[in-house]
Amino acid sequence: MRTLIFRAIAPYLTALMLLFSIFVTLRGHNEPGGGFIGGLLAASAFALYGIAFGVPEARRAMWFHPISVAGTGLLLSAISGLPSFFRGTPYLTGIWTTAPVFHFDVATIILFDLGVYLVVAGAFASIALALEDNGER
């Protein structure tokens, strides 16, 4: 699979897919999309990169171990439910405010969805890379 063309476009494709995955995640609340889809896109991006340049290179490009990315996401999602305690509402109730300057919505739900994104991206990237890795040796 390590053809020249593939290796030449792989970095751009990966970057593009990652960018797109974040976009899909953030717009998910109002248009089709969301954390699950975004996470799967990101995981595919890393899998692609791993196939093109080998797993060690892909791991280096990710900076963090993918499973710790997933763990961070889980923590983020769990924490995003805590502010609702201060309002006396049940755990994970969404809290919305509108930012005073740019008039866009700020919400704990966005954090939650980002957590989902990180979990899916991290866990599945970890699985794909682990399988690729095991075959290389």
Binding site: H29, N30, G34, G94
Partner: peptide, 9 residues
């Protein structure tokens, strides 16, 4: 819930 995509909400 301030969202227009009901599935995601």
């Amino acid at each position: 819930a301030h969202g227009r995509n009901v599935v995601n909400v």
